[in-house]
């Protein structure tokens, strides 16, 4: 399927906050009450439309446990957007946001769009982190903020799409150098001035070298 742009996303945050469930809800439009534990990284993709343009989102879902931090770090590079997720029913996941943000700032492109997500908004009765606290943290660190529920699909589409909109806006503003893949943005095959490959291998011609 052809697309105008391909944006690379990374989903980060503590273990068990619902990263994989958000991805599943976004890509498959379904909720799995108990999702398999993510070891290392998992991958998902979906096409969205912004400003009439087809944009492919390529999303890397990472493992939350501390041991996997060093592996997760290698995925920051080359990501245009990040979803930093915490669980509104577990304060410790909110407390760890600083540490996640430090990692992101250190290893990702400085232009990376970061969306702060307070997940599990359906569990209002068990809320441990106030919405205002999330908003305050986002404001303080220059992030976009949303509360979502992977279970009810509330704000899930918006979270991914709003992030894409911000990236798209940054492209429009000329903040991103779209020819530098390290920014996590690829131009679709038909849009690429150097493309000579079929649509099935998006942007593949630009790589060439590896490792």
């Amino acid at each position: 399927m052809s697309y105008a742009y391909l944006f690379k996303y990374i989903i980060i945050g503590d273990t068990g906050v619902g990263k994989s469930c958000l991805l599943l809800q976004f890509t498959d439009k379904r909720f799995q009450p108990v999702h398999d534990l993510t070891i290392g990284v998992e991958f998902g993709a979906r096409m969205i439309t912004i400003d009439g343009k087809q944009i492919k989102l390529q999303i890397w879902d990472t493992a939350g446990q501390e041991s996997f931090r060093s592996i997760t770090r290698s995925y920051y590079r080359g990501a245009a957007g990040a979803l930093l997720v915490y669980d509104i029913t577990r304060r410790d996941t909110f407390n760890h946001l600083t540490s996640w943000l430090e990692d992101a700032r250190q290893h990702a492109s400085s232009n990376m769009a970061i969306m702060l997500i307070g997940n599990k908004s359906d569990l209002e009765a068990r809320r441990d982190v106030k919405r205002e606290e999330g908003e305050a943290f986002a404001r303080e660190h220059g992030l976009i903020f949303m509360e979502t529920s992977a279970k009810t699909a509330s704000n899930v589409e918006e979270a991914f799409i709003n992030t894409a909109k911000e990236i798209y806006q940054k492209i429009q503003d000329g903040v991103f150098d779209i020819n530098n893949e390290a920014n996590g943005i690829k131009i679709g095959p038909q849009h690429s001035p150097t493309s000579g490959l079929p649509a099935s291998s998006p942007g593949g011609n630009q790589g060439g070298g590896c490792c």
Partner: peptide, 19 residues
């Protein structure tokens, strides 16, 4: 082929080894 598509196989294989 992996290099051409900029694929790092450890994204896939790490969990094979760990589990």
């Amino acid at each position: 082929h992996f290099c051409h598509h900029d694929v790092d196989i450890s994204s896939v294989t790490l969990n094979w080894f760990l589990t």
